[in-house]
């Protein structure tokens, strides 16, 4: 885990749906809690401006459904939960991502070895 690491935004854009879907596989959650979970996983500070449009697209695609729950003395929270189709999609995304990272690491890990040898 590299919680202080600032990953390139292009990488985060590509992996964000995979990671958010993975977090929602654990159960319904709300926006701020999802950003906290992403930060704890080492993905850094994902802003609401990036997260909510993604959640909106997932809702529009029928992969997520929403429920407003009353807050404790404050405004209510919008909870997002995966639908059945969303769960299947999340699992497929995780599998595809694993294959993708295996593929890329098969190529890029050699650079680490070469770098070690060079030094």
């Amino acid at each position: 885990m590299q919680s202080e690491q600032s990953w390139p935004s292009e990488w985060l854009r590509g992996v964000l749906e995979v990671c958010v879907s993975r977090i929602l596989l654990d159960g319904p959650s709300y926006g701020y809690a999802i950003t906290q979970a992403l930060a704890e996983a080492g993905l850094g500070d994902v802003k609401g401006g990036t997260l909510y449009p993604l959640l909106g697209r997932l809702e529009e695609a029928g992969r997520v459904e929403v429920e407003w729950r009353p807050g404790e003395g404050g405004p209510g929270r919008k909870y997002f939960a995966l639908t059945t189709a969303g769960r299947e999609h999340a699992q497929r995304l995780a599998a595809d991502w694993a294959e993708f990272t295996d593929t890329t690491r098969a190529l890029t890990d050699a650079a680490l070895t070469d770098s070690g040898r060079a030094s």
Binding site: G48, G71, G76
Partner: peptide, 28 residues
Amino acid sequence: VTADTHVAESGETAQEAFGDPKIYAQEI
């Protein structure tokens, strides 16, 4: 309301959490 609850919990300003309102509106 979604944006409001987010900034209330994160302690950020709307500008910090969501950036330029015009661009965020286009994203929504």
